[in-house]
């Protein structure tokens, strides 16, 4: 693997955004994901390689560390910020068709739930793993999820709930999706949610960590 790709993955894993960023302290005054991505593309490395072996590799590493409690939310947020900065340089390649996303992922917190930190983490990690993410935000009605599915019929849908009180909204949204669009893959997550609840409401997948969802979809697509 090219040195540039290794450096991009490393910067994303450790949340080094760009040269100006003071984080992490041991990488101060060094180039970050921003600079290395530009340098990689300028040196002739294909956007596909940058995405696959730079961004996705970096996000996979941080996703696994998060799952294993080696890092926590602040570190993942920094990685996601570094990834977003790098991704900005790849956007023209998506627009031109040279790069293709792994699919579309629609995500939102269910109706009544205003806690978006988990939803944001999943959104960032999915984006970093090459998915086109449509983030509907917080307190999303079933209607709004249905409209998004209408526009993106092949999309995977992710529903997030932090409150036990909003688990009922999750159940309603899943029921409607499965009734009207049974082929849609529905993933659920959030503190009060469990595998048993996933089975009860007829969702397809539950994972306590974003990386679990990434790996489930990788397997499913292969």
């Amino acid at each position: 693997m090219s040195d540039y790709l290794h450096k991009i993955a490393h910067c994303i894993e450790f949340g080094k955004i760009n040269r100006q960023s003071p984080y992490p302290p041991n990488m101060k005054d060094q180039d970050g994901a921003d600079e290395y991505t530009q340098q990689a593309l300028q040196s002739g490395i294909s956007a596909q390689h940058v995405l696959l072996h730079g961004l996705i590799t970096g996000m996979e590493k941080i996703g696994k560390k998060f799952r294993e409690n080696q890092v926590f939310v602040p570190q993942v947020l920094m990685s996601a910020k570094a990834m977003n900065t790098a991704m900005a340089h790849l956007m023209p390649y998506f627009s031109s068709g040279e790069l293709k996303s792994k699919g579309t992922f629609i995500i939102g917190t269910v109706a009544g739930d205003l806690h978006d930190i988990g939803k944001n983490l999943v959104s960032m990690i999915m984006k970093g793993n090459g998915w086109n993410v449509i983030d509907l935000g917080m307190d999303v009605s079933t209607e709004k999820f249905m409209e998004a599915i209408q526009q993106h019929p092949d999309a995977v849908v992710g529903l997030s709930a932090l409150l036990t009180t909003t688990m009922a909204s999750m159940e309603q949204t899943v029921a409607r999706i499965k009734a009207e669009k049974p082929a849609t893959t529905v993933a659920i997550g959030g503190a009060p949610v469990s595998q048993a609840f996933c089975e009860k409401i007829g969702a397809d997948v539950y994972s306590p960590h974003p990386q679990g969802l990434v790996e489930y979809l990788e397997k499913k697509n292969n």
Partner: peptide
């Protein structure tokens, strides 16, 4: 805001 504060811990 949760995300901004948690990033502030790292950045500033």
């Amino acid at each position: 805001g949760v995300s901004d504060m948690l990033m502030m811990l790292m950045m500033d």
